[in-house]
């Protein structure tokens, strides 16, 4: 693991353990650093502890009767380990939870309004909405229909847009590609990359779809059984033979460029 000493990371998580119901340990000493303005991915299979890691950071653990039992989480130098979720959102951490979870009985426009921070003026909110509709033109078209009737991709866009209204400096996404067609995944990841570059927003991305994630992040962590087992730059991870075999779908002797090529062709066909 290489330390970046020159800039303080926007988020640093040190040997964090999480207990659910005081008995079940979901993550066992996870350390993750997100440097300012970078996109970082947490990779791993189902139940590895990726979502728990995000919930520990956003404070949503409490709602599921989980708690951080050891370690500390620092956001911009401040210890946030015991803070309420809403205060963390105010500080600039926003968590796009798994499964989209838009407010179904509200319109997309109302979904965005609901997320407006306390004291945000109407004009700022409207400007914020316009910006989001610019990123996601599909949402703009359907801004006044019920969010529950949007397509899966549109709902994911809305979930991301809703998080952007809180003006986060760290955006965390839990499996944004889940259940979406490959071309939509490409579209959404492209927009994430654009937001990251244009606004300098740091992004922490949890993905099972390692192939898509490693295309846009600069660094990745691999989590297995509640522990970080590997950490490195996206390039290093992509060329790692274990990762190729278990997470990128390539077997021994498979050239990675072919894998990529294959997936791209598939994308066009679908």
């Amino acid at each position: 693991m290489q330390e970046k000493v020159e800039v303080q990371p926007i988020l640093s998580m040190n040997s964090v353990e999480v207990l659910y119901d005081n008995v079940m340990m979901a993550i066992k000493g996870v350390s993750v650093q997100v440097p300012k303005g970078e996109m970082i991915a947490l990779l791993g299979s189902n139940g590895a502890g990726k979502s728990t890691t995000l919930k520990a950071i956003s404070g949503l653990l409490k709602a599921e009767r989980g708690r951080v039992s050891r370690g500390e989480i620092k956001f911009e130098g401040t210890d946030i380990t015991g803070m309420l979720a809403q205060n963390r959102v105010e500080m600039g951490i926003c968590h796009v939870i798994e499964g989209r979870r838009v407010f179904e009985h509200l319109t997309p426009d109302e979904n965005l309004t609901a997320a407006a921070p306390k004291g945000m003026s109407r004009s700022v909110l409207n400007a914020e909405k316009e910006k989001i509709y610019n990123y996601f033109p599909r949402l703009a078209e359907r801004r006044n229909s019920l969010a529950g009737y949007l397509s899966g991709g549109e709902q994911q866009m809305l979930a991301i847009g809703r998080a952007l209204v809180t003006q986060p400096s760290l955006l965390m996404l839990d499996e944004p590609s889940l259940g979406l067609a490959p071309f939509l995944v490409a579209e959404i990841f492209g927009i994430l990359q654009k937001i990251n570059q244009e606004e300098g927003m740091s992004v922490l991305l949890v993905e099972q779809n390692a192939l898509a994630a490693l295309e846009i992040v600069s660094e990745g962590y691999l989590i297995e059984n509640g522990r970080v087992v590997m950490n490195g730059t996206a390039e290093a991870l992509k060329s790692n033979s274990d990762i190729q075999e278990f997470y990128l779908g390539g077997g021994e002797g498979t050239d990675f460029h072919n894998v990529k090529h294959y997936s791209r062709r598939k994308r066009w066909l679908s």
């Binding site: 956003s58 404070g59 949503l60 709602a63 979720a85 809403q86 963390r88 959102v89 105010e90 926003c94 968590h95 796009v96 939870i97 979870r101 838009v102 407010f103 179904e104 009985h105 509200l106 109302e110 979904n111 309004t113 609901a114 997320a115 407006a116 921070p117 979930a159 809703r162 998080a163 209204v165 809180t166």
Partner: peptide
Amino acid sequence: SRSGIKLRAIADDYMASWSVGIS
């Protein structure tokens, strides 16, 4: 109104409400 919309959001989904900082 904005507080009314937040209440309706809460009725829809507690977890999602927490995730965007709604109390």
